[in-house]
Design a protein around this nucleic acid. Structure first.
Lengths: 237, 237
DNA sequence: ATACAAATATGTACTAAAAACACATTAATT
DNA sequence: AATTAATGTGTTTTTAGTACATATTTGTAT
């Protein structure tokens, strides 16, 4: 982007008519909010009440405000719709097809977010949000299914390389739970012994010398994430 | 994105005043165009004639038109500025900081592109474009240095996994040239024997049973990319 | 024509990582 | 005390990656 834009913008500031030609694409963000519970990966969706998409669910999204960073907009959405702060967010892709939105030209930047749905208390009811198992989601409004699939794919790519899955778990977790999260995300079964070896090498977690409670079998050791490994947080306010 | 946007858009269509609140972010694309020549990775840059960035170079970019896909916009820029069609393009990231552009709110989606700068004939002169060795680029206008670095990083991540480097080479190339491209992108030296083994396993290239010409030493065999491996092309018109 | 220089071409031994696989241990339940 | 259902750990095998040396081909200089 360069002098061509500069001229366009300066002209736009002067000639109101021209302005319409350059400022007529709306910008939104959409959040794919992943959660994990009981060996299953979930995504948080809302009912679309748009005629065109009657009965379909959609991702949580909103237009970006003029004085708002893209990332800020995503944090705001999470805050407004779920009451959550300090959430892990990662940009994935920007979708820009001309007719992707029935009501006008809207480009959207997709983020995915990982939250501990078991222990974070969400204000789900008041915004008609619900958790759905990712593998059962077959249709969504807009191009949101494509967005969901790409975000899942990106998560799958990343999950063994970077310590991100811990955002889906409570602060203390067993190796069994950790393995289940990986299996839910990757959609495959893993060998327990090899998995533990791999995790040990990564040096992501610390043995807390405490044990699971309230399980009806031999309790597993509880681990926590090593400090200083995660920095992609940002509170909304 | 959902009913909230719908309402906003429908209101916007009716109330002109409101419209300004939603359609006041400009959208641009910026292209990081990589080329390769003589053991060096280059990037195509233009002079910024914006006062704020006097004497600095910038990437090639432009505002996205209301009736234009993001990808189309990138292909258009490449076509308009270089005369090239059938170029490899890949979206990398969208940059949305509020003050990233001195003349107004502009979010930009970055793409990188790989072209064969030795054999494609570019209309470089007429738009004051020049090739610069990537490793020597220390400053750019706007946030373009950050964009360049992220695109390079993404290219580095991708290069061993997917057959993309071939876009930087002519249709026939020697293993020596191929290795040099990898070395230029990754910024490290590779062992010739191990490199060849790795490439052989990937099954990306075919021996054409022809030899290099006009080299003042023993000529190497020429190879070509296997058919059907590349599908991310799109002509602009 | 011969020797030399500069590149291509290729194979093997060693090391590290990944995959396959089995048995002992703990705590709750009966 | 025996049973059940999980946790916890180690070894072998296979695969992939790294380090490394010599023969071959062509052009050039003598």
């Amino acid at each position: 982007m360069s002098e061509k834009i500069i001229k366009a913008l300066k002209n736009a500031a002067i000639e109101k008519k021209n302005r319409q030609d350059y400022f007529n694409i709306a910008v939104s963000v959409d959040c794919v909010i992943f959660g994990y519970d009981n060996d299953e990966l979930y995504v948080l969706l809302m009912q679309s009440d748009l005629e065109e998409f009657q009965g379909l669910n959609s991702l949580l999204g909103d237009l970006v405000k003029p004085n708002e960073d893209l990332t800020e907009a995503s944090f705001r959405i999470l805050w407004e719709r779920t009451g959550l702060q300090n959430v892990y967010l990662e940009q994935v892709h920007t979708f820009g097809k001309i007719n992707r939105h029935p009501s006008g030209r809207v480009i959207t930047t997709a983020y995915f977010s990982l939250i501990d749905m078991q222990h974070q208390q969400l204000n789900i009811a008041e915004h008609q949000l619900n958790w759905y198992p990712v593998r059962k989601v077959k249709r969504l409004a807009f191009d949101h299914l494509e967005i969901l699939q790409l975000c899942l794919h990106q998560l799958q790519q990343k999950v063994m390389e970077r310590p991100v899955v811990f955002h889906l778990l409570p602060p203390l977790f067993s190796l069994r739970e950790l393995q289940s999260v990986f299996e839910a995300i990757l959609g495959i079964e893993l060998d327990r012994r090899n998995f533990r070896k791999k995790i040990a090498i990564k040096d992501w977690i610390i043995d807390t010398n405490t044990l699971e409670k309230e399980v009806n079998h031999r309790p597993g050791k509880l681990y926590k994430l090593k400090a200083g490994l995660v920095n992609n947080f940002r509170p909304y306010q």
